[in-house]
């Protein structure tokens, strides 16, 4: 393992599987340069989209990544897949360091590590039939065999995601949102992945369809022992699907714990506020719940607050919070919190 291991202690519980974690992310940073100047462009600053993120994901495990818009969830996912080169830090996939690998050496990992997007429409080529969309990764990664075998495999994948193989010849616009998401999932499955970044996979779907897709993702995970990084801003969805959850704010992980522990015993003031803001479909319960209303917006990542990045909205912040950068500290059982007040 390269890179910093300041936070590594709390990770052991997750990494305890005999073969080690599927994915190990250490102190990951992605900074986007901000340039200005008319003729001569100079870097005048940086957007710290991801700023020191550390976690492991075990085989067959789902790590949920929640946080408000702009907190760096998508960038984290893209940096893991090397779709975005990290500024610093390490990403190990099954023991292989990916951040320093050549594009050629990366190729075999491209089929093993997949991504499912929020907008299934935007991510499917409108001029390709469903069959070609799903079959393409087979061709690209040389997994498909001959034409007939490939068609058979596509039909099998369509059936597996709950669709009629006869729909193979149809184009994306002829499908509903839920069906398009199923096609996106089938395409991801074609590469026989062991890890999938699910980036808001159900956020654009209606509730009744959302449940179908969430169930499908759970079933596929059980069947193929796939690890998921499940990105969403909906905490209820994340709690439902995840084994562990990491809460992000301005590029940093504020708290991470098993899903049950996090929801029963949230320790970070941001997690507490976030959870109290999520309404539960139960009027009687809602009348009794505590409501913590945060003031203001998430600050700009170009110029984040000093010390703890959450302190400008934090109900319990003191002067000290502006001076000390809180470490992610283990409070037992892998429950990690980055707050000097807990």
């Amino acid at each position: 393992m390269t890179g910093e291991s300041r936070h590594a202690d709390g990770e052991r519980a997750a990494a305890s599987s005999p073969d080690g974690p599927t994915l190990s992310v250490r102190d990951l940073q992605v900074h986007f340069p901000i340039t200005s100047g008319f003729l001569i462009r100079r870097q005048t600053g940086a957007v710290k989209a991801v700023d020191g993120v550390t976690f492991d994901i075990a085989p067959g495990e789902t790590l949920g990544l929640v946080g408000e818009s702009g907190s760096g969830k998508t960038t984290t996912g893209r940096a893991i897949l090397q779709l975005q080169r990290p500024t610093a830090g390490s990403v190990e996939f099954r023991g292989v360091e990916l951040t320093s690998i050549s594009a050629k050496k990366m190729r075999p990992f491209r089929s093993e590590m997949q991504i499912i997007f929020q907008d299934p429409y935007g991510s499917l080529n409108p001029r390709m039939s469903a069959g070609r969309i799903i079959g393409e990764p087979l061709t690209v990664h040389g997994l498909g065999g001959d034409q007939d075998q490939r068609l058979e495999r596509v039909a099998e994948l369509l059936k597996r995601v709950g669709m009629n193989p006869a729909m193979m010849g149809r184009y994306p616009h002829e499908f509903s949102g839920g069906q398009r998401q199923r096609i996106g999932i089938a395409r991801a499955l074609a590469g026989a992945p062991s890890f999938i970044v699910c980036d808001e996979p159900v956020s654009a779907l209606d509730v009744s369809i959302q449940a179908q897709i969430l169930n499908l993702l759970s079933d596929l995970q059980t069947e193929f022992n796939i690890s998921y990084l499940f990105i969403a801003h909906d905490l209820s969805v994340v709690r439902h699907i995840s084994d562990r959850v990491a809460v992000m704010y301005l590029g940093k992980i504020m708290e991470m714990a098993t899903s049950v522990e996090l929801y029963e015993n949230p320790m970070h003031p941001y997690t507490r506020a976030l959870m109290s803001a999520v309404p539960i479909p139960d009027p009687a319960l809602e009348r009794q719940r505590e409501r913590i209303v945060l003031a203001g917006d998430i600050p700009s990542p170009i110029n984040p607050p000093s010390g703890c990045v959450f302190r400008t909205r934090c109900p319990i912040a003191t002067d000290e919070c502006g001076e000390v950068l809180p470490d992610l500290v283990d409070h037992g059982g892998g429950h990690q919190v980055a707050c000097i007040k807990v």
């Binding site: 959302q210 709690r239 929801y263 539960i280």
Partner: peptide
């Protein structure tokens, strides 16, 4: 069919076919 923040178990959701 909606996942709830306060759900005790994370079993399958009852989806509408």
């Amino acid at each position: 069919s909606v996942p709830r923040l306060d759900a005790i178990t994370t079993t399958r959701l009852t989806s509408i076919e």
